[in-house]
């Protein structure tokens, strides 16, 4: 089984980080994984994205062009990638910033008001974690425990005091999935 994900949004929304957490989480579960950042002029164009591949087999291309799952944190990235998701795939999108999203037949689509939930938690910066929690809940691609463990490895030591807040955000997001 190979699962390919694109995480996309504005620079500063922490999309690279949630991609890393997915990759690390997959690695901690013994899977083969790759994480690849968007590269080139796009990096300076207001949107940032990364590709993550989680697989039981050796990973081929680290660059994902037809993902199984998409996390879109803003309008431009939703527009850019929504048409690339494979049939049967999943989209988690940030409904705090994407007010109207078309329903795409054959896809599981979950709107998540990530900024609103993050604000409720007292820190707008964890909006990305809310989205990731929802994505994990929707796709079950890694466990919540793996994502939490990955946080310890990905966040630099000096930010470890923020782990409980991040975990709370992950759990809030996950709770949105019935």
């Amino acid at each position: 089984m190979t699962y390919e994900i694109i995480c996309a949004g504005f620079g500063g929304q922490g999309v690279m980080l949630i991609g890393e957490l997915l990759a690390y989480g997959g690695m901690l579960e013994g899977k083969n994984v790759t994480w690849f950042p968007s590269y080139g002029p796009e990096m300076r164009g207001g949107t940032a994205n990364c590709s993550v591949v989680i697989s039981d087999q050796p990973v081929g291309s680290p660059i994902v062009s037809e993902p199984d799952g998409l996390i879109a944190m803003n309008g431009p990235s939703f527009e850019k990638f929504k048409g690339t998701v494979k049939p049967g795939g999943a989209i988690v999108y940030n409904s705090s910033m994407i007010e109207t999203a078309p329903v795409i037949p054959g896809l599981k689509m979950l709107p998540v008001p990530t900024n609103d939930i993050a604000s409720e938690l007292g820190n707008n910066k964890v909006a990305n974690m809310v989205a990731l929690g929802a994505f994990i809940g929707l796709t079950k691609i890694i466990t919540l425990a793996s994502a939490e463990k990955a946080l310890e490895q990905v966040l630099p030591e000096r930010h470890h005091k923020l782990i409980p807040l991040n975990v709370a955000a992950l759990e809030k997001g996950m709770a949105l999935v019935k």
Binding site: M27, N32, V33, W35, F36, P37, V59
Partner: peptide, 10 residues
């Protein structure tokens, strides 16, 4: 190349 250099893998 740039892709191999930027890609993260275990």
């Amino acid at each position: 190349d740039a892709i191999m250099g930027q890609m993260m893998e275990p």
